[in-house]
Design a protein around this nucleic acid. Structure first.
Length: 805
RNA sequence: GCGGAUGUGGCGAAAUGGCAGACGCGCAGGCUUCAGGUGCCUGUGGUGGCAACACUGUGAGAGUUCGACCCUCUCCAUCCGCACCA
């Protein structure tokens, strides 16, 4: 007899939705809090895809499990709606973004309902709602007020296709994150957030969070902490007249006697400052222009051919030995890292080596090793602790000692100091696009950049039909003159508004805080509520944008903590990245690919309980799993058998036939929910149901416990059976307890090995001592010990016996 | 190039120092059924054997251990992230 999943599932979903059954209670008087967050979906798609099944279901199961265990669970949802992804999708569809987002949010809600998600729908937020982005703007004002936001001309990533500036995070590998096109470098006036100030704090967050090591490493790499020295070099002309100085950063101070040239990034300011002394300044400008347009193709090309341009007429003086060397500009030196300049030691750095070969520059070897084919780099010379050469008083010392002594010398000469460098840059924070949070600032000829009064927030995004990106890379908002022209809040004279908008990451960098108090119009959230809900206990979601998103989250949370707006530095205690669902070619199943199977299709065919179980029976939460319908019959058979339990009820209390299995099951399933190991929960439940069917009956109490164990994963069918059998609501019941005394049986089966090889499995009383075991074996299994002397008996009580002969 | 992870039957996968392959799919055989792309039962890593059983087996090779999928070292393969970061 099959159960009618269509009507049963709808019945419960309607009820949960209508009653908002899963409402979280602020300041619950007795229950402990538990905060589960699922990464809110981006409204760009408007439809849930298989990837969402991987992330939502475990979060929902954990939420339901925790509620049954007496927790006051906060499990909210919302939509990430501002920014390029939604705007590009809206443009493609030819809809106004406002309307596009409204539709998308509605569709998400319907689909989440169909998934049986136990969200608190009263707390739903959307980042493009003025009530929400009021507080995104408020946070920006605080950043500005505390010197963590600044506007500056700088060389930044620009996507010619999307017509906007992008952050480093949004242009990884030289490709636009949204359209995949090549990103070029452009000089522009840009808002930056001082994320670099938070490198150490963020590294602390990474250490404290419970998250996969690979994700932690990706984030540490992105921050890119590196310890070394900053050293000052004088710049002179042919006649040794001092023209200025510049700093370099190095992690290999021990090679300083090997410098044969210096290299600046093409954009380095020194080039502009000394342009009158550079004889070939025209060539330098031409080189600059060329490198700015270098595309992805050039950068990835295998040759990695070194290009550059000498600065004729300028020389640098090595502070340790007074040696005069040539200066170049070259694009292998990055303007944004360190001070945008390096000392070049071709014998001991492979890039310098290649550059020296290309430009025919001499080399000086200062550490042992064979430098004829390639540089002997620090990995090799430090590991082998080679001796120093050609390094004045340090010649003959081993490298490790020399490194310390040379550093001391540089410091005592007053030309250097120990420093720490980070790869991470400040966050370029504006986009020349329509669909985003307007910046709450105006530009006044008299007062400069003037922030709006907090009382005037939100600054509403003006409506317009002309929202397509501009060809010249200006924001379309610049055309809305009655928005742009305004009065300066400070002096009252005519002023203009900022017309760029914030990036899509703005709204998602603090949204977990808003869920604690989503309707507050006095603060981003009430401080006591933030304190009550605290850090997110478990945060699930995809891994696609995890490095960026989590770092941005750490950054904002730390900033808000420092200004006293939130009670903790750690937004999340545990972050789980769900694996991908792969299609039949082993590639990521994407929403756009034609072979993508929609979750709604699976739900319509098999029911949502079956779909929920199937996706997570396929493999572990953090593993990639290939999608297939194969095996779903195993799940539907299981659910049919669960349904059939109603007709097998006999007796009330737990039977002696099932007491051990049931207690073990309760223990195992509970542990597996905590660790989100849903696949083994399902198999454990299958094993139990097989036992029940073999015995031909289940008691009422056993059925009750079984339904509770399955409820977090398959909430509909279990709610229905519970109601039919017990005439009550399963959600009013609580998680079954197990008793330790039923986890162990008096007579156990344990393996006996001879010389480490399995010989026999024997039945034996629990908790015998070693002598008793040997005696027992001699009595009952004489063959195991006959014919040889037992040299040694290894007996791990109740686990294994190993006889050594 | 650097970093991280993974590697187990025909397939998805269990087992984190103690009986490898649980559970599910698939496959084979059987029972039920008017019928079945239904339900139920049995078997199923490989090799040999009618069989009980024997040997063998977790990417490859070494090591630690009474005992290794699990710990250590070397290598190979695949996937992911970063990539001229001084």
């Amino acid at each position: 007899m099959n159960y009618d999943f269509v009507s049963i599932e709808k019945k419960w979903q309607d009820k949960w939705f209508k009653d908002n059954t899963f409402k979280a209670v602020d300041f619950h008087p007795t229950k402990p809090k538990y905060y589960i967050l699922y990464e809110f979906p981006n409204v760009s798609g408007g439809n849930l895809h298989m990837g969402h099944m991987k992330g939502t279901i475990p979060a929902d199961a954990l939420a339901r499990y925790k509620r049954l265990n007496g927790f006051n669970v906060l499990f909210p949802i919302g939509g990430d709606a501002f920014g390029l992804p939604a705007e590009n999708a809206a443009i493609k569809k030819g809809t106004d973004p406002h309307e596009f987002v409204r539709d998308g949010m509605k569709r998400f809600e319907e689909q989440f309902k169909k998934l049986g998600m136990s969200f608190d729908y009263d707390r739903t937020i959307c980042t493009s709602d003025p009530e929400y982005y009021k507080w995104t703007q408020w946070i920006f004002l605080q950043l500005l007020k505390h010197g963590k936001a600044y506007k500056q001309r700088g060389v930044v990533n620009f996507c010619p296709n999307c017509q906007t500036v992008l952050s480093n995070e949004d242009s990884q590998g030289g490709k636009c994150d949204r359209c995949g096109g090549d990103v070029v470098q452009k000089e522009r006036n840009v808002w930056f957030l001082k994320m670099r100030d938070y490198c150490e704090q963020m590294l602390g967050n990474i250490d404290r969070i419970d998250m996969a090591e690979s994700l932690k490493e990706a984030q540490r790499n992105w921050i890119g902490k590196s310890e070394g020295m900053q050293v000052s070099f004088d710049v002179v002309d042919e006649n040794n007249k001092k023209l200025g100085t510049f700093d370099i950063f190095t992690t290999c101070i021990e090679t300083i006697y090997g410098i044969t040239f210096m290299v600046l990034a093409p954009e380095n300011k020194l080039v502009d400052n000394l342009k009158n002394n550079i004889k070939n300044f025209k060539d330098v400008l031409a080189y600059r222009k060329k490198t700015a347009l270098r595309s992805e193709f050039d950068r990835l090309s295998d040759q990695k051919e070194k290009t550059g341009c000498v600065l004729e007429g300028l020389f640098a003086i090595n502070p340790v030995n007074g040696k005069k060397v040539t200066i170049y500009v070259a694009d292998f030196v990055l303007a944004g890292y360190g001070s945008g300049a390096v000392m070049a030691v071709p014998s001991h750095d492979q890039r310098d080596f290649e550059f020296a070969k290309a430009f025919d520059i001499p080399m000086v070897q200062v550490i042992e090793g064979d430098c004829s084919k390639h540089a002997v780099e620090k990995k090799e010379y430090l590991e082998k602790n080679y001796k120093m050469l050609n390094s004045a008083e340090f010649t003959g010392l081993d490298v490790k000692t020399a490194k310390k002594k040379i550093a001391e010398k540089v410091i005592s000469l007053g030309v250097g100091k120990k420093t720490t460098n980070y790869k991470m840059q400040d966050w370029s924070f504006n986009r020349q696009r329509y669909w985003g949070e307007p910046f709450p600032v105006v530009f006044c000829d008299h007062c400069g950049i003037v922030p709006l009064d907090e009382a005037d927030l939100p600054l509403i995004l003006p409506e317009t039909k002309d929202y397509l990106p501009n060809k010249n890379g200006d924001s379309p908002i610049s055309k809305i003159t009655d928005f742009v022209n305004c009065k300066c809040p400070k002096c009252g004279r005519d002023a203009k508004r900022e017309t760029d908008t914030m990036p899509n990451w703005a709204g998602s960098s603090w949204y977990w805080l808003r869920y604690c108090d989503p309707h507050n119009d006095k603060a981003l959230a009430d401080f006591d509520k933030l304190k009550y809900w605290g850090s997110v206990d478990c945060y699930t979601g995809g891994t696609e944008h995890i490095t960026r998103h989590v770092l941005y989250a750490f950054f904002w949370q730390n900033f808000l903590y420092d200004i006293g707006a939130v009670p903790t530095r750690d937004p999340f205690l545990r972050k789980m990245g769900s694996g991908l669902i792969l299609d039949d070619t082993g590639k990521k199943m994407s929403k756009s690919s034609t072979n993508g199977v929609s979750p709604m299709e699976v739900i319509d065919k098999y029911g949502v309980d079956a779909a929920r179980l199937h996706v997570h029976f396929l493999g572990g939460y953090e593993d990639n799993t290939p999608w297939t319908y194969d095996g779903i019959t195993g799940i539907t058979t299981f659910l049919d058998r669960v349904w059939a339990l109603q007709d097998m009820v006999k007796g009330d209390e737990i039977s002696k036939e099932h007491i051990f299995e049931l207690n073990r099951l309760i223990k195992k399933v509970g542990e597996d929910y905590e660790n989100l190991k849903l696949n083994t929960i399902i198999s454990a439940l299958m094993i139990f149901i097989k036992k029940v069917r073999d015995d031909g009956f289940i008691t009422k109490q056993e059925l009750r416990d079984f339904l509770l164990l399955l409820n977090p994963l398959a909430p509909h069918i279990t709610s229905e059976i519970y109601e039919r059998v017990f005439h009550a609501e399963i959600l009013d019941d609580s998680w079954p307890k197990y008793d330790e005394k039923y986890l162990v049986e008096d007579v156990i089966q344990i393996p006996v090995q001879v010389n480490g090889k399995l010989a026999k499995v024997v039945s034996i009383k629990r908790d015998l001592n070693q002598d008793e075991v040997l005696e027992y074996l001699r009595q009952n299994y004489p063959k195991l010990t006959e014919g040889f002397e037992v040299k040694k008996l290894i007996y791990i009580p109740n686990k294994i016996i190993n006889i050594i002969k």
